[in-house]
Design a protein around this nucleic acid. Structure first.
Length: 197
DNA sequence: TCAATGATTGAG
DNA sequence: TCAATCATTGAG
């Protein structure tokens, strides 16, 4: 009776790879208000969260894993736009990114906070928390397309966020290029991890 | 404030 | 080889 296969929600088609095949800062800004959809196998249904905080990382950015170099884990940043890049930070937390720019050019947007549906008790304010809450692991999701429903995790367009509701400020937790204003979040949204000072 | 915890990186 | 670093979090 129960069909556990991921099924497409009619009003939530995935964003196309071309959405991500653009300037990383533009993608980071436009992802605010978009939805991250996660299939929950144990419940047989989809869970949708609104993206409220992002950060941009590019090839010529000292804070980027692929800065001036293409080796190891950072190779994923050169993959097809729309690909998931999940890495382990501080030995205990996975962080979710989506690859941007054309294939061959490094770039990614880090998801720092999501607004979850009410009443589920999900903690999605913080890059380590949101992956834990949605059970997104490096082993399962690194390299999967976030543009395909079959991944069980994909991105979809949502509400447009007006410019006056967007705060652009400096990124969190880095020491290199800490002055770059490459972090975007939705103004006054309670799920944002850290407010600008 | 500060320790936990492990992959990645760069120096030797 | 091996020590320092790190896009964080939760406990005290």
């Amino acid at each position: 009776m129960d069909d556990l296969r991921p099924t497409l929600l009619p009003d939530c088609p995935p964003l196309a790879p071309t959405f991500f095949e653009r300037d990383t800062l533009t993608v980071a800004r436009e992802l605010l208000g978009c939805r991250l959809l996660r299939f929950q196998p144990e419940l047989g249904r989809w869970l949708g969260c609104v993206i409220v905080e992002t950060e941009a990382y590019t090839a010529n950015d000292p804070a980027c894993h692929a800065y001036n170099r293409k080796t190891g884990r950072a190779a994923m940043l050169y993959e097809h736009p729309g690909t998931a890049y999940v890495y382990l930070i501080y030995g205990m937390y996975d962080c979710l990114n989506v690859v941007t720019e054309p294939q061959g050019t490094a770039g990614a947007v880090l998801f720092r906070a999501l607004e979850p549906p009410e009443g589920l008790g999900l903690r999605t304010n913080g890059p380590g928390r949101l992956t834990k809450a949605l059970k997104i692991t490096r082993q399962a999701y690194n390299g999967l397309p976030l543009t395909a429903v079959e991944s069980g995790l994909y991105l979809s367009a949502g509400m447009q966020v007006a410019d006056h509701q967007v705060v652009q400020t400096t990124r969190i937790g880095i020491t290199k290029a800490a002055d770059y204003p490459w972090r975007f979040y939705v103004k006054d949204n309670p799920w944002v991890s850290v407010k600008a000072k």
